[in-house]
Nucleic acid binder design. Structure first.
Length: 645
RNA sequence: GCCGGCGUAGCUCAGUCGGUAGAGCAACGGUUUCGUAAACCGUAGGUCGGGGGUUCGAUUCCCUUCGCCGGCUCCA
């Protein structure tokens, strides 16, 4: 029996008998480590703690503090879930059950649907199985033999997976009565799973194919400690409180009307004023960034969409065409063809480039009935769209300007974190893409260089590009850490060619310009939805529909209160007078619930001294301020678009 | 589109094992004139999402349709 040399992450190495396990390695480092160990990484491969080490290797013990720890733990949690389901529902057939970013799920095929009550029973059974501390036992099967076994068990879905994915000898894990085709690794035993909760049951399709078997997916989450679990559950509660659909109703910002149709947004006065503020800011910035503002029709001849290709490859996402006289018209799903027509309306010189055409362009896209979601997924929306026509050598600086512009958006609306993704072509399938290999490399390099020059970390996503060009997506991260994809900067090789765009270059000859599609907010609707959730309805002063409310203490203070309101209104401040016959407390409560940033209490003392008693929505009573002073303070908060004050 | 759940007053919800419905808040009328998160009394308000069926009788049971919610899939 030989020995193997085990190198630990700190660089030290030690000899062990061949076939020693990672658990024994952990034990030799310290009993404490062995106790918390979940799995191990041997030469970069994740394995079970009791996997034998057969040759010299680098070994790292995976514990709850390792990045991989939680993923493995949740994968094991998914197995625990399946084990519990099979105990209670022998008619359920397990499909797949992976960990996710926030927990885990397991898909089952079963005739009858699981109910909420079933979830509670399953969770109780999981608890029981966890307390029984059942080991996760790794077993190897030759493919044929394993197939036969799963077939005898009636696990037809597992058989399908084994047929497709299994190595000649594959691994499976046994947890009590539950046997699963699984690569692993898993934690040592169910007793280690301390804090978990089942969250919901929903539908899924077998292998994500909607024509395939409908499955029932049970979602759950697990954490190493009860506290982490509680924190997560609280965060879910917090997210629920911020739900823009609920706040949209409570704050009277927008609605969706049954009578009008799903996915179509009605902006109420209070949402409307916020939209106006956003748009005013954006327009001013667009002009400052050298964009031209254009407006294009909402419906155009279908023929135009045939040229652009949308009538073909985008048809499933378009409203049907309408008959007009002897022609067919199409409600626009995109703004690009309109802008292209403006470009094409006369000859263009290289001296004019880049041309940056911006439009708050309202588009209509057909979304399948089950997918609409408040403001975040709708059928009619307004993109803050722009198309940049330029020469290849101008591309980098244009892209940089777009990314900087996106950063300005983030800053202005109080987001401090973002993530960037660069989607490139799949190098294996050049035939799927418009444009030559050289052009693609040039464009991808331009995007990449820009991000590198700007020192922006990004995720490189090969194969994620759309067929017409590579793109940069910016996801902003909101106040409670959720990412939202809004900004997109897309390169386009396709449309300039399809429409035969040209400019006359210095050599006097026609050349084809390149085109960049770019949206910063994405769509005004979605952006608004994200903003509502980000601020939890408590907008900064410049965006608040009502910036201050004046509250006379009793009827005899109404005249003074009215004067206060008029003076603020004259300074362009959105102020309301609440002189309803309600107690001060009640009116304060209403203003708080409406997230009005400032409440101005006016009684005898204030009238006497010519000022207001300021109450802030966040910190409460802020004491007396002379009216003139408060007015300029408020004006400044608005003019500087201050997010925190 | 698919799977599951749900549609009762403006809002949030209760209720009817088949005999046409209630609460709180909001609205309206009155009393009260109040100092930092809900004063008091009263009034009015519903073809129980729409259509069809079963039934002496349907808000309740069945079918269908529209919409919403949780997901799948897809995207700004």
């Amino acid at each position: 029996m030989g020995s193997v040399k085990v190198t630990l992450p700190d660089g030290t190495s030690k000899d062990f008998p061949q076939g020693t396990t990672a658990r024994e390695v952990a034990q030799s480092i310290g009993p404490g480590l062995a106790k918390v160990a979940l799995a191990a990484k041997v030469d970069g491969n994740l394995v079970d703690l009791n996997a034998p080490i057969e040759s010299d290797s680098a070994v790292q013990v995976i514990t709850p503090s390792s990045p991989e720890g939680l993923v493995i733990y949740r994968h094991s949690s998914a197995h625990l879930l399946a084990a519990a389901v099979l105990e209670l529902f022998p008619d359920a057939h397990p499909g797949i059950g992976p960990p996710t970013d926030t927990g885990f799920f397991y898909d089952f095929y079963r005739e009858k649907a699981f109910t909420e009550a079933d979830l509670a029973r399953i969770e109780a059974k999981m608890k029981e199985l966890a307390e029984a501390d059942i080991p996760f036992e790794r077993i190897y099967f030759p493919k044929e033999e394993g197939l036969k076994l799963f077939d005898q068990m009636g696990e037809f879905l597992k058989c399908e997976l084994i047929q497709e994915k299994a190595e000649p000898v594959f691994s499976a894990y046994r947890t009590g009565k539950f046997l699963d085709f699984c690569r692993g690794p898993h934690i040592p035993s169910t007793g280690r799973i301390k804090a978990f909760k089942l969250l919901s049951v929903a539908a899924a399709h077998w292998k994500g194919d909607e024509n395939s078997q409908p499955m029932q997916r049970i979602y759950g989450t697990s954490f190493f400690s009860k506290k982490d679990l509680d924190d997560y559950l609280n965060q879910l509660e917090e997210a629920k409180k911020r739900d823009h659909r609920r706040l949209g109703k409570e704050l009277d910002l927008f609605s969706i009307q049954d009578e009008a149709g799903p996915g179509l947004i009605f902006w109420h006065p209070k949402g409307g004023i916020i939209r106006k503020e956003i748009e005013d800011w954006l327009r001013a910035e667009l002009l400052a960034h050298g964009y031209d503002m254009v407006f294009t029709p909402h419906a155009m001849r279908l023929h135009l969409w045939e040229i652009s290709g949308h009538a073909n490859f985008y048809r499933d996402n378009m409203f049907g065409p309408m008959d007009v006289e002897n022609d067919r018209y199409q409600l626009k799903p995109m703004n690009c063809p309109g802008h292209i027509l403006i470009y094409k309306d006369r000859r263009r010189s290289y001296r004019e480039l880049p041309i940056r055409m911006a439009e708050l362009g309202t588009v209509y896209r057909y979304e399948r009935s089950g997918v609409m979601h408040g403001l975040l997924r709708v059928r009619g929306f307004t993109q803050d769209d722009a198309h940049i026509f330029c020469m290849m050598e101008q591309l980098e600086s244009e892209v940089q300007d777009c990314v900087e512009f996106a950063q300005l958006v983030l800053k202005t609306f109080g987001f401090d974190r973002f993530e960037v993704e660069l989607s490139a072509r799949d190098p294996e399938h050049a035939e799927h893409y418009a444009g030559t290999v050289e052009e693609w490399s040039q464009a991808e390099n331009a995007l990449m260089n820009t991000l590198k020059r700007m020192n922006i970390p990004y995720k490189y996503m090969p194969g994620e590009a759309v067929f017409y060009g590579p793109k940069i997506d910016v996801k902003l991260v909101d106040a409670i850490g959720r990412p939202w994809q809004l900004t997109t900067v897309q390169f386009d090789f396709n449309l300039p060619r399809r429409f035969g765009l040209e400019y006359t270059a210095a050599d006097g000859k026609p050349h084809t310009p390149v085109m960049v599609h770019r949206a910063l907010l994405g769509s005004v609707e979605r952006f608004f939805g994200v903003l509502i959730e980000h601020y939890a309805g408590a907008f900064p002063v410049w965006l608040s529909p009502v910036q201050a409310v004046v509250l006379p203490i009793s009827e005899r203070h109404t005249d003074y209160a009215r004067k206060v309101a008029e003076e603020l209104r004259a300074a362009g401040i959105r102020v309301e007078l609440d002189d309803r016959n309600e107690k001060l407390n009640a009116r304060i409560r209403d203003a708080q619930l409406q997230r009005v940033p400032f409440m101005l209490v006016t009684g005898d003392r204030e009238a006497q001294a010519g000022g207001v008693a300021v109450r802030r929505r966040d910190t409460g009573d802020a004491g007396f301020r002379p009216l003139g002073e408060f007015k300029s303070y408020l004006r400044e908060l608005i003019d500087t678009r201050t997010n925190k004050w």
